[in-house]
Each structure stands twice: as C-alpha cells, then as structure tokens.
C-alpha cells in the first residue's frame, strides 16, 4: 500500500502537491489578514466577539478550502485516470484494483486531514500573535480555550477528510471532473456556510456523520470494481 502511494506521488510529482498547499495557506492567511486589518479598527461592531470566534472562522475557512481542494485531487487521481484511459494500464497490472483505488483515496483522506490540522496550527498561531500586538479582538487566550479548540480542529479535520471523499460517488458515475468539483462546493456551501455565527458544522454530529457516509459510500462504490469493464 505504501509502495502504491509512493508510485502515485511519483506520477503526480510530490513538489507540486507541497507547493499547492503552501500557496493555499498563503491565500487563506492573506484573506484573513485583509478582513482583520480592514474590519478590526472599526470598534462599533467588532468582527469577532472573541478569540474563539476568530479561531472558529479560521477553521471553517480552512476546511471549506481543503474540501474543495480534495475534490480537485480526486479528479486528478481517480477521475483523471479514467478520462485519460490510463486506468486501463493500471488495471492490467498485477495489483488488486481495490488496493490501487484505496491507495489513491487514502492519499486524499490523509492530505485533507493533515492540511486542515497544519493550516489551523500555522494560521491560528499567526493570528493569535497578530492579535496580541494589535488587540482588535478582546479577551484573553486561556489554555482551556486552546485545548478545546485543538480538540475541535482534530474532530472537524477527520470529518472534513471523510466528507472530501463524498464527491467521488457522484463524480464516478459519469467519470466527470465538473460533477466532482461541484459536489464538493455544494457540500461546503451546506456544511460550512456561516449564518449569524451558526453553521451546520458546529453541530459536530452532522459533519461526523457526513464523514462516515463519505467513507461508506466510497467503499460501496469500489466494492465491485473487479467486475467492471474498462474500455
């Protein structure tokens, strides 16, 4: 399995993936700094009531971005192989088809999981430091707050990683890249949209069960992979 993942990385060039996520971090950070610097000095209606709310927004934005990013990866790793017909090459190798696909899917899962956690850590730290200097958001940062937020990030990251597989079930039907990406956008819109401080993902059961659904449907969709024709 590890070998298969290595081969996938060789195929897709690993440095490309790393740059991709670094650029994504930068864009998210830049966007947040823009909000913070523009809206921060306006005191009548503060953008963030507390540090917890600020960190919460950072987390939501990161998850939304990486769920969509994952659908691009899925398109490239799975749908792309079908579209370019290279899947006929892969499936004629003496390697189980299930293993081949599992390697690809676990890459997407781990990729999303790791990026959500790392991005939260980096961007969150930068923001807390920033706020310690500018002080636009009121309140003190307690260790309790950090621990709670940490736990939340990890559960949400697991949920996001599972949900990031959901678009495949739709995209695989017609082997379509647009369908895959649009599905991920829809998931983000539903789960991550923030309405007056409330979002569906704040009820942790919802993202977690969607995540479980994502993993389950993925297993179902590759269960019969040995029987399908690859034209």
């Amino acid at each position: 399995m590890l070998h298969l993942i290595k081969l996938e990385l060789k195929k897709g060039r690993m440095t490309g993936y790393l740059w991709g996520s670094l650029i994504t971090y930068g864009v998210i950070l830049g966007f947040l700094i823009l909000i913070y610097m523009v809206e921060g000095p306006v005191q009548e209606e503060p953008i963030f009531q507390s540090n917890a709310e600020m960190l919460g927004l950072i987390d939501t934005l990161i998850r939304a971005t990486f769920i969509i990013y994952a659908s691009v990866l899925l398109s490239k790793l799975v749908i792309g192989e079908f579209q370019n017909k290279t899947i006929a090459l892969l499936f004629a190798y003496p390697v189980s088809r299930k293993k081949l696909l599992l390697a690809k899917l676990s890459m997407v899962f781990i990729w999303t999981l790791a990026n959500v956690i790392i991005a939260n850590f980096i961007i969150g730290t930068i923001f807390l430091t920033l706020n310690a200097n500018f002080g636009y958001v009121q309140g003190t940062v307690t260790s309790g707050l950090l621990i709670n937020h940490g736990i939340s990030i990890v559960t949400q990251a697991i949920a996001a990683a599972g949900m990031s597989l959901l678009p495949l079930t739709i995209g695989m039907r017609k082997k379509s890249v647009p369908a895959t990406i649009i599905t991920s956008v829809l998931i983000v819109v539903i789960v991550c949209s923030n309405n007056m401080g409330f979002s569906l993902s704040s009820i942790i059961a919802i993202p977690l069960s969607l995540s479980a659904l994502g993993i389950m449907l993925t297993f179902l969709s590759i269960r019969n992979i040995d029987r399908i024709d690859v034209a």
Partner: peptide
Amino acid sequence: YEKLTAEQNLELHCEYM
C-alpha cells in the same frame, strides 16, 4: 502519463509490474 518522460513512464511500469 503525458507529462512524465519516456523513461519515467517505463520506470513506473516496471514498478507496478
């Protein structure tokens, strides 16, 4: 794999085989 070189394509093939 169009973006890979001829040699890389064959290397991948040998690895999978």
